[in-house]
Design a binder for these strands. Structure first.
Lengths: 237, 237
DNA sequence: ACTTTAAATCATCGACCGCTGAATTAAACG
DNA sequence: CGTTTAATTCAGCGGTCGATGATTTAAAGT
């Protein structure tokens, strides 16, 4: 993370550059703090917390480093803010999607249906949410692989939805032992994490036969794969 | 990564501390460069490349930072050396395990068998290889989630074994389309990555019902889960 | 109109970063 | 035994890091 980038374009309208003090009211689509979050999200998702300096973020966003401290306090505060921003939206939609499916399916819950409902908001945000959501997913993917702060962070933000998911899977797989349900979820979680990363690894390995950017296909295959896995793990004496 | 640790114990025999020059021949089990690699492996696996300074490694290993440059040149050179050290051992064993299974099974290859053979060396090293191997696995897990250098690194070190795995799975699932085989592998790879991390996430989520440290169980469940997934994905028109 | 507050830059501080050249000590080699 | 080479610490260089206090500008409140 060291890009000089000394003169990135004509620097916007009337080259207001280095001008100190509060800027005149602009009708821009979203505030400066959102812009900073977008940039930080992008960089953190690619290089991790320690791979990005606040100078990197400030330069890329075209603001002074002091402004990041003004809004977010510390570097860790910025990171947390990035993590939190979309978590709430995502969790609300995933819970709603699961509840809607449970209501619709009544007694006829299937593992495929539950898992698809769980994944659906990810597909939609990934496809229609713009690049910010893809960066966010990649960030989650990295957090899930981190043994130090990852576990705690993931638990804090996402355990509620996951418990609801497992609850519905328990209904869809009557007689399943809880232990097996959790182990099966562990495998699904790993597959999901890798998909969220969109690292392009599969594209290269398959010589272009599979495109990890095809989210709809990726998630459909994951639901089918995992549903079969759940059945196999949970249907034993 | 900032630990003071000003006086970690009595500093060994006769407190040879700050003593300059080549040390007298010691009958220690392995050389200083191996010790440095062990420490670096541990720290990198927990905090990532950018989360660890060469001073951190040097302090933890009880040597001067200049010694790391003497052995490994740059920080990246140290990281690569850590990555490479065990990759060769692991790959040789995984290929041998797959070949042995192919020979034994003849025409009666099963997905469970192939996947178990693929996973077996991981179980054994994880159980009997000491903490170094666990740190190494966690490092791989993080590399696999990294979108920048992870994909290239993983491909360089591990693609050979993976191609052999898919080849055998193709034989075990006659009629499967290559595209489906790759997508199924993608899901297995994700599950494996998460297991390798041993982040303790499942332990907490299941309130202690599942212990991610139980490698034998984790890998047995993964093989069963993934084999069913492969069948489900590959057995369609 | 005056005051207060919000939003921004500037200049800088002390700490830490990766890395290097010189010195030192002991082993290996002849 | 003398020379070369391997293994180590020391001292420090130039650069970057996260963070802060002072200052400036414009909006908001009264």
């Amino acid at each position: 993370m060291t890009k000089p980038d000394p003169e990135a374009g004509p620097a916007g309208p009337e080259t207001r550059k280095g001008r100190r003090g509060r800027p005149p009211k602009s009708e821009g689509p979203s505030g400066t703090s959102e812009l900073i979050l977008d940039v930080a999200e992008d960089l953190f998702s690619k290089h991790g917390l320690h791979g990005v300096s606040i100078r990197d973020v400030a330069n890329e966003a075209g603001v002074d480093t002091a402004l990041l401290h003004y809004y977010f306090g510390t570097k860790l505060g910025l990171f947390d803010a990035v993590f939190k921003r979309r978590a709430e939206i995502l969790n609300a939609e995933r819970l709603a999607s699961l509840d809607a499916y449970a209501l619709k399916a009544g007694d006829a819950l299937t593992p495929e249906g539950v898992i698809s409902a769980f994944l659906q908001p990810l597909v939609e945000w990934g496809e229609k949410g713009g690049p910010g959501w893809k960066h966010y997913f990649a960030l989650i993917s990295q957090a899930n692989a981190n043994p130090v702060w990852g576990g705690e962070t993931m638990a804090r933000y996402f355990d509620d939805v996951i418990r609801r998911l497992i609850e519905l899977l328990r209904l869809a797989l009557p007689g399943a032992r809880d232990e097996d349900l959790y182990w099966a979820y562990h495998n699904l979680s790993g597959a999901l994490t890798l998909t969220l990363g969109e690292t392009g690894r599969l594209d290269r390995l398959s010589n272009g036969l599979c495109r990890s950017g095809d989210l709809r296909l990726a998630y459909a295959n994951m639901a089918r794969f995992a549903a079969a896995g759940f059945r196999a793990l949970c249907a034993r004496a």
